[in-house]
Design a protein around this nucleic acid. Structure first.
Lengths: 360, 360
DNA sequence: TTTGCATTTTGAAACGTTTAAATATAAATT
DNA sequence: AATTTATATTTAAACGTTTCAAAATGCAAA
């Protein structure tokens, strides 16, 4: 075929593609322009061996002129695999999850996966809906920071659908998860307050049906009991991980006739709410009340009071969870059982200025 | 068909589905179990009129027993539309973008769209790659907070691919975007510092090839010129929106023999870096230096110093951008030209404690 | 020249939907 | 009872890939 003929044909095909306007060119167009069969084009695209130098070149050229991008929807349908994984988090504005997401994404990209992110807004119904959407989209697996219900999870696992919990696990489920040692970390945090001399120590808990809720309470309980300190009912404030709940619990605590001298807040958002309530009541921290918080972030260290926190390895949580998910997907594909278990990472206490001995 | 026969058939089909294990049931299975054609099943699923009470019931029952979930991959291939839109942001750990994302998601859900989120990490190459992946995934449109390059954008618009810029626009592109009045907001911010009596006012800029970089500089310039204040070269620090750049610029500024008495930081992450540098150098704010920052967040108001900020309507930006994108998609579908333009939202100055008159 | 064998290329059937056209059924009109 | 009309249901062809079996080609040996 002469160069001229090639050019002419190219223009013609380009035009036919442009006419349809938004529709993009297909393997068919490429094959036609290169003067080969679509099977050959497919082989070139997928780097299969056994295509001659000459045709490979022709095909590549045709793809370039047409600016061809393979249709992954069609491919997914054929191969029964999308190379997309879903991630559902309860609060996308919480940096904890977005840092984890970076770990997930980096690891995902390394293995050729894309990421669909869903935000359940701490709403179990919406979480169910998101999971079933993801399933319908035929994602290859899901990372889930649960907002509480196990219903969706049950349905999916019954189908042997690859799923890994991250950060939060509904109490009861205890496999295929990447979490931190919440009991240990909460124990250390409470110990820190006790060692400073505090006795009236309050806690603002997260959602109790979740591991991050109940385990942190357990660690707190353990430390308190060990030190023979009572846990007053009014010092036990049940929050739900939201800023608003932290705010409300903070007000509840500091308006008591005998307010606590130290508060253990179980996540970053609730701590922000707590600090707001302290500001509103003009209660200085740590002078009047010490604050220790789960989750460590950029703002914690450079404003006043510099917060004492329990720092979690957020990026690593995401990274490790994605690795586990990939192993499960592969095992599933080969029809064998994966024997993935729960992975527990350590957390770290960062002592700063928001905790101090109680004022006499 | 007797109830018994139905049950028997159901068990048989269920078993055949379970054997394939992870594969889920198809319209075919449903049709077989319900004893109808797959076209009828399709009609029921899509709520088409003209299916008898009786068959509708049968089909619904069959779908329930099989726990059938439609394969959106197959549907997408057929109808040439995925009902998925992509969103690419330069820093997913920046709450600005996740709050915008909430607006996007709420609006998307309302119209039956799902969301794929990509994080370009301020890397234009990676951004290109993400965009081309999204295109291959055949998303119906893209929301883009650009990290600087226009190359990807050009390629996509040439194909008339629906795309809306959000927050940041590469200088030059000036259509289909939802942004705020950066010049005006930066002008007001600088005016605020000037009105407090500051004359040595520094700026930490963002990436200059982006509207959020250059427009904010323009506003600053305008205010300074109007007040007949010089813009010293060493007070003009070019950052890149990252915490690290804010930190470095902060150090540069405060180590000058004649440091500024006020600093205008052009986004939240850089402000965090700036505050870190002030802490390291033990320079009190606002006593020695005033700080005003773009972007307002939860932590800005309840720690000390309470930050003076320019607050953007983050949620609304996302919401409005998604609405615009949907309009473009619809116009495209009907083959007509959309006449969408740029949408500029107002920002708001929140005066708090980090800005004060210069110390004498 | 033929034969056989390895290599390259192609044809055609999937994958799970939607949809237009065709057919079957029921109801209404003569 | 025969015909028309409206309604309900099914058939079969797409959508853009992958993939396997079959066909074509090239090349060495007979």
């Amino acid at each position: 075929m002469t160069i001229n003929l090639l050019r002419q044909r190219s223009i013609q095909i380009l035009k036919s593609v442009q006419n349809k306007n938004v529709k993009s060119s297909t393997m068919h167009d490429v094959a036609r322009l290169a003067g080969v069969s679509i099977a050959t084009v497919s082989s070139v695209i997928n780097g299969k061996s056994g295509v001659s130098e000459k045709l490979t070149e022709k095909v590549n050229q045709a793809m370039a002129t047409l600016d061809y991008h393979p249709d992954l929807v069609a491919r997914s349908l054929k191969v029964g695999r999308t190379n997309v994984i879903g991630m559902v988090v309860p609060d996308v504005t919480n940096q904890f999850y977005t840092e984890a997401m970076r770990g997930v994404e980096d690891e995902a990209r390394k293995h050729g996966y894309m990421l669909i992110l869903g935000n359940s807004n701490e709403d179990t119904d919406h979480e169910m809906h998101l999971l079933s959407m993801l399933f319908s989209q035929r994602v290859d697996g899901v990372l889930l920071a649960s907002s509480g219900s196990t219903a969706a999870y049950d349905r999916l696992t019954r189908r042997r659908f690859p799923i890994v919990f991250i950060d939060r696990v509904p109490v009861g489920c205890s496999e295929r998860a990447v979490i931190i040692d919440n009991v240990g970390a909460a124990y250390e945090a409470t110990r820190h307050l006790i060692s400073l001399g505090h006795e009236r120590i309050a806690i603002i808990t997260g959602k109790l049906p979740l591991s991050t809720g109940s385990d942190r309470v357990d660690g707190y309980r353990k430390a308190m009991q060990e030190a023979h300190l009572p846990i007053r009912e009014e010092y036990f404030q049940v929050g739900d991980f939201s800023l608003e709940s932290g705010h409300q619990c903070g007000l509840n605590l500091m308006k008591l006739s005998e307010p606590p001298t130290a508060i253990f807040s179980c996540n970053n958002k609730m701590t922000l709410g707590l600090m707001r309530s302290l500001a509103e009541l003009a209660i200085p921290c740590p002078d009047k009340v010490s604050v220790i918080s789960f989750d460590d972030f950029e703002w914690a260290a450079n404003f006043s009071p510099r917060l004492t926190t329990v720092a979690q390895p957020t990026y690593e949580i995401g990274q490790k969870a994605m690795q586990m998910l990939i192993r499960i997907i592969c095992a599933n594909k080969d029809g064998l059982d994966d024997n993935e278990n729960i992975l527990v990472l350590p957390a770290e206490l960062h002592v700063r200025d928001s905790t101090a001995p109680p004022s006499p």
